[in-house]
Protein backbone atom coordinates (compact mmCIF):
# COMPACT_ATOMS: atom_id res chain seq x y z
CA UNK A 1 0.00 0.00 0.00
CA UNK A 2 1.13 3.53 -0.63
CA UNK A 3 1.00 6.37 1.87
CA UNK A 4 1.96 10.01 1.83
CA UNK A 5 2.50 11.29 5.35
CA UNK A 6 3.20 14.74 6.77
CA UNK A 7 6.59 14.94 8.47
CA UNK A 8 8.02 17.64 10.68
CA UNK A 9 10.61 17.52 13.42
CA UNK A 10 11.64 20.95 14.70
CA UNK A 11 14.98 19.52 15.82
CA UNK A 12 15.97 18.35 12.37
CA UNK A 13 16.01 21.83 10.85
CA UNK A 14 14.14 20.47 7.82
CA UNK A 15 10.94 22.11 6.67
CA UNK A 16 7.64 20.28 6.95
CA UNK A 17 7.19 17.95 3.99
CA UNK A 18 5.18 15.00 2.75
CA UNK A 19 7.01 11.67 2.81
CA UNK A 20 6.03 8.66 0.72
CA UNK A 21 5.94 5.15 2.15
CA UNK A 22 5.23 1.87 0.46
CA UNK A 23 4.51 -1.18 2.58
CA UNK A 24 3.23 -4.71 2.02
CA UNK A 25 0.02 -4.69 3.98
CA UNK A 26 -3.21 -6.60 3.63
CA UNK A 27 -5.88 -3.96 4.20
CA UNK A 28 -8.80 -6.33 4.74
CA UNK A 29 -10.44 -5.60 8.06
CA UNK A 30 -7.59 -3.27 9.03
CA UNK A 31 -7.68 0.38 10.03
CA UNK A 32 -5.43 3.32 9.20
CA UNK A 33 -3.88 3.08 12.66
CA UNK A 34 -2.81 -0.51 11.97
CA UNK A 35 -0.95 0.71 8.89
CA UNK A 36 0.67 3.59 10.77
CA UNK A 37 1.89 1.18 13.43
CA UNK A 38 3.23 -1.17 10.75
CA UNK A 39 5.08 1.70 9.08
CA UNK A 40 6.55 2.78 12.41
CA UNK A 41 7.59 -0.76 13.35
CA UNK A 42 8.92 -1.88 9.99
CA UNK A 43 10.00 1.17 7.99
CA UNK A 44 10.53 4.26 10.06
CA UNK A 45 10.36 4.37 13.83
CA UNK A 46 10.77 8.15 13.83
CA UNK A 47 7.21 8.62 12.56
CA UNK A 48 5.37 10.16 15.50
CA UNK A 49 1.63 9.96 16.20
CA UNK A 50 -0.60 9.64 19.24
CA UNK A 51 -2.66 6.52 19.90
CA UNK A 52 -4.03 4.65 22.86
CA UNK A 53 -7.32 2.74 22.99
CA UNK A 54 -7.38 1.76 19.29
CA UNK A 55 -11.18 1.54 19.37
CA UNK A 56 -12.51 5.08 19.09
CA UNK A 57 -12.90 5.89 22.78
CA UNK A 58 -9.81 7.83 23.89
CA UNK A 59 -9.89 10.40 21.09
CA UNK A 60 -6.11 10.68 20.71
CA UNK A 61 -5.66 9.76 17.05
CA UNK A 62 -7.76 12.33 15.22
CA UNK A 63 -5.99 12.91 11.88
CA UNK A 64 -6.68 14.38 8.48
CA UNK A 65 -6.91 11.32 6.23
CA UNK A 66 -7.40 11.88 2.50
CA UNK A 67 -8.64 15.35 3.29
CA UNK A 68 -11.15 14.39 5.96
CA UNK A 69 -10.71 14.62 9.73
CA UNK A 70 -11.24 11.22 11.31
CA UNK A 71 -9.92 8.76 13.86
CA UNK A 72 -7.16 6.57 12.47
CA UNK A 73 -8.22 3.64 14.65
CA UNK A 74 -11.76 3.32 13.29
CA UNK A 75 -11.11 4.36 9.68
CA UNK A 76 -11.05 1.30 7.43
CA UNK A 77 -8.18 1.13 4.94
CA UNK A 78 -10.36 -0.53 2.35
CA UNK A 79 -12.01 2.02 0.13
CA UNK A 80 -9.41 4.75 0.74
CA UNK A 81 -7.78 6.07 -2.42
CA UNK A 82 -4.01 5.51 -2.64
CA UNK A 83 -1.64 7.00 -1.89
CA UNK A 84 -3.43 7.52 1.39
CA UNK A 85 -2.61 11.04 2.44
CA UNK A 86 -2.26 11.55 6.19
CA UNK A 87 -1.80 14.97 7.76
CA UNK A 88 -2.20 16.35 11.28
CA UNK A 89 -5.53 17.96 12.22
CA UNK A 90 -5.74 21.33 10.43
CA UNK A 91 -5.12 24.77 11.91
CA UNK A 92 -3.40 23.65 15.12
CA UNK A 93 0.33 24.12 15.72
CA UNK A 94 2.25 20.97 14.85
CA UNK A 95 4.57 19.69 17.56
CA UNK A 96 5.99 16.92 15.46
CA UNK A 97 4.76 14.88 12.46
CA UNK A 98 1.09 14.03 13.13
CA UNK A 99 1.06 15.41 16.67
CA UNK A 100 -0.64 18.75 17.20
CA UNK A 101 -0.81 21.10 20.15
CA UNK A 102 -4.30 20.64 21.64
CA UNK A 103 -3.80 23.43 24.20
CA UNK A 104 -6.20 25.89 22.57
CA UNK A 105 -8.83 23.20 22.08
CA UNK A 106 -8.84 22.31 25.77
CA UNK A 107 -8.76 25.97 26.79
CA UNK A 108 -12.06 26.42 24.96
CA UNK A 109 -13.42 23.28 26.57
CA UNK A 110 -12.54 24.54 30.05
CA UNK A 111 -14.03 27.93 29.25
CA UNK A 112 -17.58 26.57 28.97
CA UNK A 113 -17.42 25.28 32.56
CA UNK A 114 -17.93 21.66 31.53
CA UNK A 115 -19.18 20.41 34.86
CA UNK A 116 -22.49 20.09 36.62
CA UNK A 117 -23.47 23.09 38.74
CA UNK A 118 -26.09 22.39 41.38
CA UNK A 119 -25.90 24.37 44.59
CA UNK A 120 -28.68 22.60 46.46
CA UNK A 121 -27.63 20.32 49.31
CA UNK A 122 -26.86 16.89 47.98
CA UNK A 123 -29.63 14.38 48.68
CA UNK A 124 -28.92 11.15 50.52
CA UNK A 125 -29.44 9.11 47.35
CA UNK A 126 -29.30 9.97 43.66
CA UNK A 127 -30.94 13.06 42.20
CA UNK A 128 -33.92 11.84 40.22
CA UNK A 129 -33.98 12.29 36.48
CA UNK A 130 -36.75 11.01 34.23
CA UNK A 131 -35.69 8.82 31.29
CA UNK A 132 -36.94 11.55 28.93
CA UNK A 133 -34.78 14.13 30.71
CA UNK A 134 -31.82 11.79 30.54
CA UNK A 135 -32.50 11.20 26.85
CA UNK A 136 -31.75 14.91 26.29
CA UNK A 137 -28.09 14.09 27.02
CA UNK A 138 -27.83 11.41 24.34
CA UNK A 139 -25.78 12.67 21.46
CA UNK A 140 -23.93 15.05 23.80
CA UNK A 141 -22.16 13.14 26.57
CA UNK A 142 -20.56 10.66 24.16
CA UNK A 143 -18.06 13.28 22.90
CA UNK A 144 -14.48 11.99 23.16
CA UNK A 145 -12.79 15.39 22.67
CA UNK A 146 -10.79 14.20 19.67
CA UNK A 147 -10.93 17.62 18.00
CA UNK A 148 -11.99 16.33 14.57
CA UNK A 149 -15.00 18.67 14.46
CA UNK A 150 -13.43 21.86 15.75
CA UNK A 151 -10.43 21.63 13.42
CA UNK A 152 -12.74 20.98 10.46
CA UNK A 153 -14.69 24.18 11.12
CA UNK A 154 -13.93 27.18 8.86
CA UNK A 155 -15.18 29.55 11.58
CA UNK A 156 -12.60 28.07 13.95
CA UNK A 157 -9.87 28.36 11.30
CA UNK A 158 -10.69 32.05 11.00
CA UNK A 159 -11.00 32.87 14.74
CA UNK A 160 -9.36 30.03 16.65
CA UNK A 161 -8.76 32.19 19.71
CA UNK A 162 -12.25 33.69 19.98
CA UNK A 163 -14.72 31.18 18.55
CA UNK A 164 -15.15 28.27 20.98
CA UNK A 165 -15.66 25.73 18.23
CA UNK A 166 -18.20 22.90 17.90
CA UNK A 167 -16.69 20.53 20.47
CA UNK A 168 -16.71 23.05 23.32
CA UNK A 169 -20.17 24.31 22.35
CA UNK A 170 -21.53 20.77 22.26
CA UNK A 171 -20.31 20.36 25.83
CA UNK A 172 -21.73 23.73 26.82
CA UNK A 173 -25.11 22.46 25.67
CA UNK A 174 -24.58 19.08 27.38
CA UNK A 175 -24.83 20.89 30.73
CA UNK A 176 -27.54 23.33 29.67
CA UNK A 177 -29.59 20.29 28.65
CA UNK A 178 -29.03 18.45 31.94
CA UNK A 179 -32.15 18.68 34.12
CA UNK A 180 -29.89 18.54 37.19
CA UNK A 181 -27.87 21.63 36.22
CA UNK A 182 -28.84 25.03 37.64
CA UNK A 183 -26.46 27.38 35.84
CA UNK A 184 -28.26 27.74 32.52
CA UNK A 185 -28.47 31.53 32.83
CA UNK A 186 -24.78 31.98 33.60
CA UNK A 187 -23.92 29.60 30.79
CA UNK A 188 -26.07 31.55 28.34
CA UNK A 189 -24.57 34.85 29.58
CA UNK A 190 -21.11 33.58 28.75
CA UNK A 191 -22.11 32.32 25.31
CA UNK A 192 -24.01 35.45 24.31
CA UNK A 193 -21.07 36.95 22.48
CA UNK A 194 -20.44 37.80 18.83
CA UNK A 195 -17.52 35.39 18.64
CA UNK A 196 -17.78 32.58 21.21
CA UNK A 197 -21.04 31.19 19.85
CA UNK A 198 -22.25 33.35 17.01
CA UNK A 199 -19.31 32.72 14.66
CA UNK A 200 -21.05 29.42 13.90
CA UNK A 201 -22.66 29.85 10.52
CA UNK A 202 -24.14 26.39 10.28
CA UNK A 203 -21.61 25.12 7.75
CA UNK A 204 -22.00 21.68 9.37
CA UNK A 205 -18.49 20.40 8.67
CA UNK A 206 -18.50 19.28 12.30
CA UNK A 207 -21.48 17.01 11.76
CA UNK A 208 -19.92 15.54 8.66
CA UNK A 209 -16.67 14.51 10.36
CA UNK A 210 -17.71 13.55 13.92
CA UNK A 211 -16.48 9.96 14.37
CA UNK A 212 -19.10 9.36 17.06
CA UNK A 213 -21.96 10.53 14.86
CA UNK A 214 -22.79 13.53 17.04
CA UNK A 215 -24.37 16.77 15.86
CA UNK A 216 -22.74 19.91 17.29
CA UNK A 217 -24.59 22.15 14.83
CA UNK A 218 -27.93 21.06 16.26
CA UNK A 219 -26.70 21.70 19.79
CA UNK A 220 -25.49 25.16 18.80
CA UNK A 221 -28.89 25.81 17.21
CA UNK A 222 -30.60 24.91 20.47
CA UNK A 223 -28.34 27.28 22.41
CA UNK A 224 -29.20 30.05 19.93
CA UNK A 225 -32.90 29.26 20.31
CA UNK A 226 -32.61 29.51 24.10
CA UNK A 227 -30.91 32.89 23.77
CA UNK A 228 -33.69 34.14 21.52
CA UNK A 229 -36.34 32.81 23.88
CA UNK A 230 -34.62 34.48 26.80
CA UNK A 231 -34.46 37.83 24.99
CA UNK A 232 -38.19 37.85 24.24
Amino acid sequence: MRFSIYRYDPESGAKPHMQDYEIEFDPSGKKVLDALIAIKEQLDESLAFRRSCREGVCGSDGLNINGVNRLACVTALEGLKEPICIRPLPRLAVIRDLIVDMGQFFQHYRAVKPYLVNLEPEPENERLQAPEERAELDGLYECILCGCCTTACPSFWWNPDKFLGPAALLQAYRFIADSRDQATDERLDYLEDPYRLFRCHGIMSCVEVCPKGLNPTAAIGRIKALLVKRAL
Binding site: Y115, L116, N118, E122, E124, N125, E126, R127, L128, Q129, A130, P131, E133, R134, L137, Y141, F175, D178, R180, D181
Partner: peptide, 16 residues
Protein backbone atom coordinates in the same frame (compact mmCIF):
# COMPACT_ATOMS: atom_id res chain seq x y z
CA UNK B 1 -24.40 8.50 44.56
CA UNK B 2 -21.38 10.78 44.79
CA UNK B 3 -20.64 10.17 41.10
CA UNK B 4 -24.26 10.91 40.27
CA UNK B 5 -24.07 14.16 42.24
CA UNK B 6 -20.95 15.05 40.29
CA UNK B 7 -23.01 14.79 37.12
CA UNK B 8 -22.33 11.32 35.72
CA UNK B 9 -25.08 10.75 33.14
CA UNK B 10 -26.37 7.39 34.35
CA UNK B 11 -29.16 5.76 32.39
CA UNK B 12 -32.45 5.98 34.28
CA UNK B 13 -35.41 3.87 35.29
CA UNK B 14 -38.97 5.10 34.81
CA UNK B 15 -39.04 6.32 38.42
CA UNK B 16 -35.99 8.50 37.77
Amino acid sequence: YELEHMGLPFSRLDNG
